[in-house]
Simulated assay, not measured.
Amino acid sequence: MDLLINQNLFIIITILLSSSFSMGLGNEIQNLGQYPLVVSTWPFVEAVRAAWRAVDNGLSAVDSVVEGCSACEELRCDGTVGPGGSPDENGETTIDALVMDGTTMEVGAVAAMRYVKDGIRAARLVMQHTQHTLIVGEKASNFVISMGLPGPTNLSSPESTAKWVKWKDNGCQPNFWKNVLPANSCGPYHPRKLPSFVEGTCSRGSVGGIPSTSSHIDLQNHDTISMAVIDHMGHIAVGTSTNGATFKIPGRVGDGPIAGSSAYADTEVGACGATGDGDIMMRFLPCYQVVESMRLGMEPKLAAEDAIMRITRKYPNFVGAIFAVDKNGVHAGACHGWIFQYSVRSPVMEDVQVFTVLP
C-alpha cells in the first residue's frame, strides 16, 4: 500500500513540475466566473487562443467556436482532429464534426464525411443553410462543397497511410470486431455462432462489467476536440471535430457529431464537452446529463463526476473525460481511466491555462 501511495504522489509531482502552463489539480480549481470564456478538451492551446482572439474581438460564441476548432483541424491536433489521421480499416480518413448554438438550440453536424477537410465549417453550413441537424457520408461532402468549401481532396497523409500499413502487417490487430471469424487476422469476417445465453441480460450484466472498446482508446487515440465558448453577451456555443477512432470499421460514427454526447450547450444553464470512448459515451449522452444536472442546481464539478460515474457503473473499464462550465463561467472536469487535461482562457488570464484532472 505504501508503495502504491508513493507511486501516486510521484505521478502528481511529475505532472506539476513538467507542465509549462498553470494547472489545477483535479476539479478543485475553478475560475471566478468572468466571461468571455473559452474551454476546450486537452492542451490544445493554439485552438483556444484562436477562439479567444475571435470572441475577444466581438465575434459570437458560435463564430468563435468555429474559429477555435478550425485551428485545431489545421494543426491536426494529436493526429485525431482534422485530415491526415486515424485511418479506418480501408486506410481512409473521414471527418465528424458538430456545432451547437446554446441560445437558439440549433445544431449542425456532419459524420463520416469524405474528401472535405474542414469539418467544423461543414457543420456550420448544415446549421446555416438547412433545416436538418446531421448529414452524413459522401452526400455530406457533396453538400458542403456545393456551399463553397474546398474539395474534393484526399484526407489521408503519409503518416496515416504508414500507420495503416503497419496495422495490416500486424494482422489487423487490434480492431473493433467481436464474435467473428477469423479472430486474429484481417477479414473478410464471418459471424461466429454464439451460445444462446450470450444474448441474455444476466450474462452481459455480470460482475466485472460489460466489455467495452476502451482498450483501444489512449492519449494518442482520444478522438475529439470539444470546445465551449461564452461570448460578451453571455451566449454559449459548443463545437467538436474529430477524425474518429483509429482503424474503425468503415462507416462508423462516434459521439463527435451527436448533440448531448460529445458536447451540449444551453445559454440559460451552461455547457459540456467530452472526449474518450465515443462508442460508449453516446449510449449515455453524458453532456446532456451534465447540463441538465446543472439546471437542477448541481455544481459543475459534481455534475461532471456524476455523469462519469453513471457510465462506469455499467462499464468499469471505460476511458473518457468531461468538462463542465456553467453560465457564469465556473468550470470543472472529471475523468476515468486516464489523466485528463483541459484548457481555459478567461479575461483574468494572461494566456491559456491548462488544468489537470486525476482519475
Rank of each mutant, 00 (worst) to 15 (best):
Met1Ser: 07
Ile5Phe: 09
Ile5Arg: 14
Thr14Pro: 07
Ile15Gln: 14
Ser18Ile: 13
Ser18Leu: 06
Ser20Val: 11
Ser20Thr: 12
Phe21His: 12
Leu25His: 05
Leu25Met: 09
Asn27Glu: 13
Glu28Tyr: 13
Gln34Met: 13
Leu37Ala: 15
Val38Lys: 05
Val38Arg: 03
Val39Gln: 07
Ser40Pro: 03
Pro43Ser: 11
Val55Trp: 04
Leu59Glu: 11
Ala61Asp: 02
Val62Pro: 11
Val62Phe: 11
Ser64Cys: 01
Cys69Ser: 08
Glu74Ala: 08
Arg76Val: 13
Arg76Pro: 15
Gly79Met: 12
Gly82Lys: 10
Asn90His: 15
Gly91Ala: 15
Thr94Arg: 00
Thr94Val: 06
Ile95Cys: 12
Val99Ser: 06
Met100Asn: 04
Thr104Leu: 01
Thr104Asn: 14
Glu106Phe: 11
Glu106Tyr: 13
Val107Trp: 14
Arg114Pro: 00
Tyr115Leu: 09
Val116Trp: 01
Gly119Asn: 10
Ile120Ser: 12
Ala123Gly: 09
Ala123Tyr: 04
Arg124Tyr: 14
Leu125Asp: 05
Val126Trp: 09
His129Pro: 03
Thr130Arg: 15
His132Arg: 02
His132Ser: 03
Val136Phe: 12
Val136Asn: 05
Gly137Glu: 09
Ser141Lys: 06
Phe143Arg: 03
Val144Gly: 06
Leu149His: 08
Pro150Phe: 08
Ser156His: 00
Ser157Asn: 03
Pro158Trp: 04
Glu159Lys: 15
Trp164Tyr: 05
Val165Cys: 03
Trp167Thr: 06
Lys168Val: 10
Lys168Ser: 02
Gln173Gly: 07
Asn175Met: 12
Trp177Pro: 11
Leu181Glu: 13
Asn184Glu: 13
His190Met: 14
His190Pro: 01
Pro191Met: 05
Lys193Tyr: 08
Ser196Trp: 08
Ser196Gly: 09
Gly200Tyr: 02
Gly200Glu: 07
Arg204Gln: 14
Val207Thr: 13
Ile210Glu: 12
Ile217Lys: 07
Asp223Leu: 00
Thr224Arg: 02
Ile225Leu: 15
Ser226Pro: 10
Ser226His: 06
Ser226Leu: 03
Ser226Arg: 02
Asp231Asn: 12
Gly234Val: 10
His235Tyr: 15
Ile236Pro: 13
Ala237Val: 05
Thr240Trp: 14
Asn243Pro: 06
Gly244Trp: 01
Ala245Asp: 10
Thr246Cys: 06
Gly251Val: 09
Val253Met: 11
Gly254Lys: 00
Gly254Arg: 08
Pro257Tyr: 04
Ser262Val: 06
Gly270Phe: 12
Ala271Val: 05
Ala274Ile: 00
Thr275Cys: 07
Asp277Ala: 07
Ile280Thr: 06
Met282Gln: 15
Arg283Glu: 04
Phe284Ala: 04
Leu285Gln: 15
Leu285Trp: 11
Pro286Asp: 09
Pro286His: 05
Tyr288Val: 09
Glu292Cys: 08
Ser293Gly: 13
Ser293Trp: 05
Met294Leu: 07
Leu296Trp: 02
Ala303Trp: 00
Ala304Gly: 09
Asp306Gln: 15
Asp306Ile: 10
Ile308Gln: 00
Arg310Trp: 10
Arg310Cys: 07
Arg313His: 12
Lys314Trp: 08
Lys314Ala: 13
Phe318Asp: 00
Ala324Met: 02
Ala324Ser: 03
Asn328His: 09
Gly329Tyr: 01
Val330Arg: 14
Ala332Pro: 07
Gly337Val: 11
Gly337Phe: 09
Val344Thr: 13
Pro347Ile: 06
Asp351Val: 11
Thr356Ala: 11
Thr356Trp: 11
Val357His: 03
